[in-house]
Amino acid sequence: MGTELNSATDEDAKSIKAFRAGDINAFNRLLEKYMDRIFNVCYRFLGDYEDAKDASQDVFLKVYDSLNKFRGDSSFYTWLYKITVNTCKNKLNSIEYRLFRKMGIIIKKDCQGKPNKNSLDEYIQNLPNGKPSPLTLLEYKEKELTIQRAINSLPPIQKIVVVLRDVEGFNYEEIAKITGLNTGTIKSRLFRARVRLRKKLEASL
């Protein structure tokens, strides 16, 4: 992940320069490039399709507002992930969100542990282009949802660290830059998250 993004930093720098010079298309290029990745991270953090949509929208609006203030001390993608993590963390910590999650869990229980129909349809639409058998697809989907539910159950910091490391593939130093945590804390949070997840997913892995 790191090397892939590092190769793109020059391109990002050019886009940022062009944006500062007044080229709005430069921002659109950055948006197109990172939109899927940011949406995906938001989804893993928040565990809800609509919330992830709102959060990623907020992230890009913040980026637009403060791109002129971006000093370039770190690479653009680190800065972008930092904004993403903060936006999602704020959302996860908000009382409204926690209440909503509680209510959401009750609704999901009523639906026999399955997500609502709209989310499921969108989820199926976004699956890879291969044509697996319905059974494989269902198993795959179930496994995905089980893992996501296990991630959802983690405390916010553990969730952020494990998603950045195991889902997004960032190394410890990059995670430290994004989250502002030191490496020791990252190691311990990551370990605790993995132990929790292993316990929850032991049967399904």
Binding site: K53, S56, Q57, P128, I147, L197, L201, L205
Partner: peptide
């Protein structure tokens, strides 16, 4: 666990998200 996490489906952003942001 790490393997399963690393191979989680990468979701594409919803259609119209870029337009909404713009």
């Amino acid at each position: 666990l790490t393997n399963a996490m690393g191979h989680l489906q990468r979701l594409n952003a919803p259609v119209g998200l870029a337009q909404n942001i713009q």
